[in-house]
Amino acid sequence: MTRKQKRLAVIAGGVGFIMAAVLLVMFAFSQSVAYFFMPGDLKTAQISPGTRIRLGGLVEEGSVKRGNGSTVSFVVTDGENTVPVSYTGILPDLFREGQGVVTEGAFDTSHAFVADSVLAKHDENYMPKEVADRLKKDGVWEDGSGKGMAAPKEKSSQEQPAKVETTGATKP
């Protein structure tokens, strides 16, 4: 091989590798990306059983029920629509009724949502971002207000109960 041919071969190899990487990335995106839905979206979206999605919303008050062993069922709501979810495993520390949650999983053939992961977060005031954005848009939730959400950080640990807080009557 001449030097020119060699150089061509090297460049072809490099470009080939990059092409392969691009194809791989595109393939992986088509395979393993989960779309995010809120319960309200599911009315219009056609999701076939077995397709992985992320389902976000609030855990409905009073909906958490323990089944056999470590199976838990609860209802995810966006204030209007609800989706029942079942999950086997240990719930994250900060999973609470009335709190925001993001679950990942798929619908089974009987249209029940089976989650295989429930997102946990580090912060007690945490609201998963997708959920917060949507709920804010729909006016169900705003930063630091009541609605069963954890009180904002400044207030959570001290004094001031949420009830009085919401009316604004007592604020200076």
Partner: peptide, 21 residues
């Protein structure tokens, strides 16, 4: 405006394979 999540399966597949050579 679509919301998706790219999780471990994506990275394991792409990164894992590409690192082999």
């Amino acid at each position: 405006g679509e919301k998706i999540s790219v999780g471990a399966p994506f990275f394991n597949l792409t990164f894992g394979l590409l690192m082999v050579p």
